[in-house]
Amino acid sequence: MSKEIRFTDETMALVQKMIKRYPEGKHKSALIPMLHLAQMEFDGWLDSPVMDYVASILKIQSIEVYEVASFYSMFNLKPVGKCLIEVCRTGPCWLLGAEDLVKHIEKNLKIKDGETTPDGMFTLKTVECLAACGTAPVIQVGETYHENMTCESVDLLLGEYKIKDARKTHYDIKHISIK
């Protein structure tokens, strides 16, 4: 990464507000919300210089950030496409056809689970229960849940996302004010 790693002023202001949500001296609590912000701001994944930067803001050791980032499944430690397609693969979704959806997407995009298309547009990731079992199978793209999915609706979905930058439109923690 050649460009300088720095939050925008707007994000930095948000970071400061987030830190104030926890008692004085307990600012490390803001780490996970901050990693979400960092991931959003720096191309959807956490490169080690990004994690070092987060550590420097919170005045903690880099290892404290690495060990957390590697524990939680939402943090991507490898580059991802602009559109991250997360297919639920647990229990009820699997029972109602998530397996077929994964197969269908793999065929359609010519990638395997965990891979990114060569044009950097799509990454396919199977994830654990998304708490939407009543409308299984479920696919999450950015912030949006797509429910009761079928192979046909997956095709429509992929077509829709092909024409927009999904992450910028959908996955934005910042669009709400934080008191």
Binding site: K26, K28, S29, A30, I32, L35, V68, F71, S73, M74
Partner: peptide, 28 residues
């Protein structure tokens, strides 16, 4: 004062002491 705190994908954080660790900015 009431605040929301966002987790990051870990079933284990539903266990109350893991949740507390996570709220402190650590592994669950």
């Amino acid at each position: 004062n009431l605040y929301c705190h966002l987790g990051a994908g870990a079933y284990i954080c539903g266990e109350e002491t893991a949740l507390i660790e996570s709220l402190e900015g650590k592994r669950g």
